[in-house]
C-alpha cells in the first residue's frame, strides 16, 4: 500500500490551479484598468489601530502587518491615483473554516472615487476571476448553485436586518447584537446565487468610512457577500485627519485596556491625510474567492500549507 508523505499536497492540485488562475485574472484586470501594482512593508512599527483586529508581534516594537491599508493610503496621498496590491496579512487568533492567521489580501484604491466605483470594480473583477477559473459551466458552493453573471443584488444594512433579523439598526446599534445577528441571521442569506452588495452601514460600524452625504446615520461602507461568505469590505475613505486621529485614539486606548499592549499612533499616515483628497478603497479576501470558485470545504484546501502544516 502506498502512503502519502506529502501531507495531502497532491490532493490540492485542483485548488492551487484555480488559485493561480484567479491571481492571474486579478493582475490582468488591474492592468487593463490602468492600476499600478505596489508592494508595502509586512513589518511595521505602527499597525492599523482597530478594536477587533490583533497584530502578531514580530520583535521589539515591531508587528506583522494586519492589512496594507495605511501604507496604500500614504501612496494615494502622494498622488498615485490608482493602486492595487496582493499581499499577505497577519491577524492573531483568527483560525477557522474561513480564517487563517496568515492570509492573502487584495486591496485597491482609487483617488477621486467613491464606494460606488468600487462596487463596479467588484463586479468586473469577480466576473473576470470566474471566467478565468471556471472548469465546468455549473458552479456550486457547499451544495448551493452560484453564479456571478446574473444581476447582483444590492441591499442596505437597514433593509437586510429588517428582512433577516427583524430589527433596524440605528446609527449606533448595540455592537454585540449587531455582530451576532450579522453573523448568524443576515450574512448566511446574502449572495445566492449571485454576489450581493450590502451597503450603508451604521456610522458606528464604519470606523474608516465617510459619512453618507444626505444621511448622517450611515457611512459609505459596503461589503460583498457571495453564497453567505464575506468576500470584500470597501468604503469611501475618511480623509479628515482630526476625526481619524480621534478614532485611532479610542481604539488604541481600548486595546491597551484589553490586550495590555500600547500601540503607537500611526503619525506618518495621519500626516499624509493632509494631502489626501476624496478616495475609495477596498480589501478582498483572495483565499475566499478561490474557495468559492473551487467549492473548497475549508481555507486549508486553497493554500499549499496552512497553519497546521506550515
Amino acid at each position: 500500500m502506498e502512503t502519502d508523505n506529502s501531507g495531502g499536497l497532491g490532493g490540492k492540485r485542483r485548488f492551487l490551479e484555480t488559485r493561480c488562475r484567479v491571481l492571474g485574472s486579478i493582475r490582468a484586470f488591474f492592468e487593463t484598468e490602468g492600476f499600478l501594482e505596489v508592494q508595502t512593508p509586512l513589518l511595521t512599527a505602527a499597525p492599523v489601530p482597530e478594536l477587533h483586529i490583533s497584530p502578531i508581534p514580530a520583535g521589539p516594537r515591531l508587528f506583522l502587518s494586519t492589512s496594507p491599508e495605511l501604507h496604500m493610503k500614504r501612496l494615494l496621498a502622494a498622488g498615485f491615483e490608482k493602486i492595487f496590491q496582493i499581499t499577505r496579512s497577519f491577524r492573531a487568533g483568527e483560525l477557522g473554516r474561513f480564517h487563517h492567521p496568515e492570509f492573502t489580501i487584495l486591496e485597491w484604491y482609487r483617488l477621486a472615487a467613491d464606494y460606488t466605483d468600487l462596487q463596479r470594480d467588484c463586479q468586473k473583477l469577480v466576473r473576470a476571476a470566474c471566467r478565468a477559473s471556471r472548469q465546468s459551466s455549473d458552479l456550486f458552493f457547499h451544495g448551493s448553485p452560484i453564479d456571478c453573471s446574473s444581476p447582483w443584488e444590492k441591499i442596505t444594512v437597514a433593509r437586510a436586518f429588517e428582512k433577516f433579523a427583524g430589527w433596524v439598526p440605528g446609527p449606533n446599534p448595540d455592537t454585540d447584537r449587531f455582530d451576532l445577528d450579522m453573523s448568524q441571521k443576515v450574512q448566511k442569506n446574502l449572495g445566492f446565487p449571485a454576489p450581493c452588495i450590502l451597503e450603508d452601514y451604521p456610522v458606528s460600524q464604519a470606523a474608516l468610512a465617510r459619512i453618507k452625504p444626505g444621511n448622517p446615520e450611515v457611512a459609505e461602507r459596503f461589503e460583498l457577500f457571495w453564497a453567505g461568505v464575506e468576500l470584500a469590505n470597501g468604503f469611501s475613505e475618511l480623509t479628515d485627519p482630526v476625526e481619524q486621529r480621534m478614532r485611532f485614539c479610542s481604539a488604541i486606548e481600548s486595546k491597551k485596556r484589553l490586550e495590555g499592549i500600547d500601540y503607537p499612533m500611526p503619525e506618518a499616515f495621519l500626516l499624509s491625510l493632509e494631502n489626501l483628497g476624496p478616495c475609495a478603497g477596498i480589501a478582498l479576501g483572495v483565499d475566499r474567492l478561490v474557495m468559492l470558485l473551487s467549492d473548497a470545504d475549508s481555507i486549508d484546501d486553497v493554500v499549499a500549507f496552512g497553519p497546521q502544516t506550515a
Binding site: R97, D176, E223
Partner: peptide
Amino acid sequence: FEFNKPGKGQSLYR
C-alpha cells in the same frame, strides 16, 4: 466548533 468574525466586528465562537 465554528470561528466567525463579521467584517471588522468581534470574533464569535459558535
